[in-house]
Design a protein around this nucleic acid. Sequence first.
RNA 1: GCCGAGGUGGCCCAACUGGCAGAGGCGGUGCCCUUAAAAGGCAUGCAGGUGUGGGUUCGAAUCCCACCCUCGGCACCA
Length: 846
Amino acid sequence: MSNVPAATDGAATAPADPAAEPERYDPLAIEPPIAERWARERTYSLPEELRRNAPAEADAPYYALTMFPYPSGDLHMGHAEIFTIHDALVRHLRMTGHRVLNPIGWDAFGLPAENAARNRGADPKAWTYANIEEQRSTIQRLGYSFDWDTVLYTCDPAYYAWTQWLFLELFGAGLAYRREALVNWDPVDQTVLANEQVVDGRGERSGAIVERVPRTQWFFRITDYADELLDGLDAIDWPDRVKNAQRAWIGRSEGAEITFPTADGQDEVLVYTTRPDTIFGATYFVFAPEHPIVTRRMAGDADYDAFLAEVSRRSDVERQAGKTGYRLPFEVTNPFTGEDIPAFAADYVLMEYGTGAIMAVPIADQRDFDFARQHDLEIRPIIRPTAEDGQLLDELDPATMTEAYLGDGVMVNSGDYDGLAWPEAKARIIADVETKGWGTAKVNYRLRDWLVSRQRSWGPPIPIIHCASCGEVPVPLEDLPVELPDDLDFQVQGSPLDQHPTWKYDVACPSCGDEDATRDVDTLDTFVDSSWYFLRFLSPTDTEQAWPVEAAGGWLPVEQYTGGVEHAVLHLLYSRFVVKAMRDRGHVAADEPFQALLNQGQVIMDGASMSKSKGNLVVPGEVYETYGADALRATMLFASAPEDDIDWADVSPTGIHKWLSRIWRLTLEQIARETDGGPAIDADAAATLDRAVAGAIVGASEDYEARKYNTAIAKLMTLTNAVLDATRQGQGGPSVRSALDHLLTLLAPVAPFLTEELWSRLGNEGSVHDQPWPQADTALLVDDEVELIVQVNGKLRGRITVSAGADQAAAEAAARADDAVARHLDGDVVKVVHVPDKLLNFVVKG
RNA sequence: GCCGAGGUGGCCCAACUGGCAGAGGCGGUGCCCUUAAAAGGCAUGCAGGUGUGGGUUCGAAUCCCACCCUCGGCACCA
């Protein structure tokens, strides 16, 4: 980088008149010109050849990524926090010798733009880009050192052409398919949703209670990767809570599928159970209400139709409140007992999980227990509880039980299996089931396929053409992107794209040429856009390929990903799936997209989340327009460790501003002394200060490595105080200058503007951000003498000074010579504990 | 209900593999500067033993057990 002149004209205008007011720290004056220069000169861009090719080891390549923002408006405090953490990380990495790939873009498709169009008549594209422009300007004003050469927008046809390509790749691999299923319908947003987007029975965005409706929709076959998605978690460095959330979401369970014949011999029903050992306790049988055997057998039954209608109207919340059941007019035979047991249709059994039918064991399953109590069904004890040591406990008495028994025990009333502990019984029964041909061992997952189609219009059109004779035909690659029309009417009820007068008809079947073929009118979920954007950053303008495969091999996985925990099972799971699927198609070498993940905490206010309606909203603008970007950044980082929440009511930008002002003043005073030749601090003070510098380098470096920016800043404050102490009488000299140079270098990732300005005012070469990370002179930190604390029976009784590395004998002698200690050594000394250079503890008896 | 994180001075927040509890900040108080206020400067721990009860240990904020509270996440998945 070229030699940087003083970032403002401040240096040139610094007053030589000693009587004049000293120049005050004015971040609002010094920051904007530097920010503009970084933007103009693309200071933090990586050379294109480096990014488009596999990087060399010697470059110490590092892909640091922060979740790209959704442009719903200007940046909020959460954005400022995560970008600040990420930027401190990136700037520190650069100073420690890494070539950092640090891109930014916008997750620019999505419903808010469409809602703005519907409610205010805005053009979704114009609305989106206006918000992006506002965010970009704030991001640059705050000094975040992104690479502006690789900006991407997911709503740009140059981007979504490749989102559509990705869809077709998956379609070609059989990983994208269309089928009818019971799906989540959001009546407010007027679209279907993925399971991951439904929280507590409500749409994640709209908050509306979702309805379960049968619809033909597009899915990605993420369940093909369920096992790998689960096992892969062990190899990545993510917070446990995110891994656990994904494990729970994938929900692997081991059990068996067993066939139960109907008593009339007409049908065979497959059930899935994780507790085949409890089969002797199966006293009734339950089908999902929509189970095909039931709907076939009950066809034309008005009473049952009424039940079905009732059940499908119930929300999840209602379903959990009580279990609705319908006694079916046939029975099912338990293959192990030969008994015929009553059959029900009930909404607590889900068609979408397992086989849609269960054997009900009320003694050992809480839901079956509840249902049995409600419908007065037999609860048969087939397990006798045992204590931890295997000791038999009292037998269960169904008459008095209030809940199912889930603990350890041995089988009873279970034929040949009596007396076995249940894990053994489970293994034996599965083996016997297989031998007899009644079923097989089976692994099941809670994870469902990813529903990706949306009935919305501000998203990438699904690149499929429907033809009466050829079926679902992919749009030929040369015809990508399938572009959105720019004259959509957002006032219509339902999907604007579907109701566009010409768009879907203006196409012929690519296969047979049939003019009656139509385009698929659904768009892809925004989570599809964001499931691969980290790959596109390598070559965002490439028209030949989605990403350079070679380069992707070198840069992926992203070494450090930072972002919010709200994506634990959405974006973060989808991206993992996409990378694995693309890997299997030969497009990327990595197994995982993100090697390490850092989830920042929330920015809250007085213990509550901020919102306009609560009137406790703080926005970045009001902070940086008062105290500057550096103060905003330092406040965020100092407030807490990155993963902890920040309560804005507890933090003080004024305190940080005061500290930065102090650094400003100390540096300007030093510059004045160097100009005027003022006195130097004495040798003792210089030695003390040099030690403080070495200590700060060691401490701050460790903290930066561990990303504990709050304690790193605390150590820099300590160093500032040391400079203050040393210069109290107005002296300066080389040690003070060195301390300030080091302070600025160590502070650069946190406060990039102040440090850049002062670095150049001190007359240093280049940018402070291009300096190598300082190395401490650790010899300064080695003491000849150390203070040893002396305890008697663990209580502090004295302090003695001994030479460093003194052995126990020497330390003990010195300690006994100390009056304060000797006073407590009346009894018998039974033991002496010596921790070299730290502590001596006498254990005294009596 | 299950899983996870966490309870340390008035407040936020530190304390490496157990080893002097307090780094750093906020707030408070006093003084200086000022016509005054704000801003700034200087000084000062202001008093508490780490949520509760046990245990291990020479020694526990740190490890173990039980419990209480707070905050997140997941909850009919057979």
